[in-house]
């Protein structure tokens, strides 16, 4: 109670008021300089593009409003497939990636085969181009049994999940190794088993450390689901391709591209917000 009263009674000194004024002046100047340089650069870039000799044609071919209007509903419909693929792939990647990370983090000679398997998996799928995995899964698996009819969207989901679970497993493993060993010792000292220690102590802390990297992988996966078009699935990219073939105009690709950007935008902002909240909650931050 007395502490609060003391705080209320305090008035900033003239020294502090002067400093605040100086800071305000300095920040106003920085904002003005930044604003001016950004506008100047944008104008210059715009002028360079618009004054180029082929601009008229490019504008026609890539930025035609009529074609955009015609393509938009079809591309949007295709994007719905991408979103569904993304949804299921995310679940598979989360489960498989965590499993692989845990498998790789097991210690002791007993676990060598499991460790080796997980290591081999991550090495293989981190090295393979996503496109090649999609071809192998998309055309290879149906060829094993010509009778079966698995939808290309499902095969695409499998291909994307195989690749991304390898990336995510590595990110998670790095996060788990970044949790200080004393945390494990404290947990085990309480009598928690190895699995409980991982689940309750190590993985929650690891996740917090790797949120930016995981979100980066997620955004990356968000656009790589567009690659399933190579299997013939009518997703946003494929829909754009179809409209392009009808109109001899590339605007549908730009539409699809913008939609993918729009798709990733909320996720990126959400990441920032989540991280800021975690930082506020768990530590008292400074200005640096």
């Amino acid at each position: 109670m007395t502490e609060r009263a003391a705080v209320e009674a305090w008035e900033p000194s003239s020294l502090e008021l002067e400093r605040r004024l100086a800071r305000k002046r300095a920040s106003r100047r920085s904002v003005l300089i930044a604003l001016f340089s950004t506008v100047a650069f944008a104008a210059l870039a715009w002028w360079a593009i618009v004054s180029s000799p082929g601009w008229e044609g490019v504008q026609q071919q890539f930025f035609s409003p009529e074609v955009a209007r015609k393509a938009f509903p079809k591309v949007l419909e295709g994007l719905w497939l991408n979103i569904r693929v993304l949804f299921f792939a995310t679940i598979v990647v989360a489960v498989l990636g965590t499993l692989l990370a845990v498998m790789r983090s097991l210690r002791g000679p007993v676990w060598f085969p499991v460790r080796a398997l997980a290591t081999g998996y991550t090495d293989l799928f981190r090295g393979l181009p996503v496109l090649i995995v999609l071809y192998l899964v998309g055309f290879g698996i149906p060829a094993l049994n010509p009778e079966s009819r698995i939808s290309v969207a499902v095969l695409g989901t499998v291909g994307i999940s195989l690749c991304y679970s390898a990336y995510v497993a590595e990110v998670l493993r790095a996060g788990m190794e970044a949790v200080h060993p004393s945390q494990r010792i404290a947990a085990r000292s309480l009598g928690l088993s190895h699995a409980q220690t991982l689940r309750l102590v190590v993985i929650p802390q690891a996740l917090r450390k790797v949120v930016p990297a995981l979100m980066n992988d997620f955004v990356s996966m968000q656009k790589d689901v567009g690659l399933i078009s190579v299997l013939g699935a009518v997703d946003a990219v494929r829909a754009a391709q179809i409209v392009t073939a009808q109109t001899y105009n590339f605007t549908p690709y730009v539409v699809a591209g913008l939609l993918f950007v729009a798709l990733s935008f909320p996720m990126i902002r959400l990441t920032d917000a989540v991280q800021a909240r975690m930082a506020r909650r768990e530590q008292i931050g400074g200005t640096v």
């Binding site: 004393s182 945390q183 010792i185 404290a186 947990a187 085990r188 000292s189 309480l190 009598g191 928690l192 088993s193 102590v201 929650p204 802390q205 917090r208 768990e282």
Partner: peptide
């Protein structure tokens, strides 16, 4: 070992509380 450790309480130099 888990059963044994559950019977012993340990306090560490650096506290080792779980920050999350």
């Amino acid at each position: 070992v888990d059963k044994v450790r559950a019977r012993i309480g340990v306090v560490f130099q650096h506290f080792n509380l779980f920050p999350h």
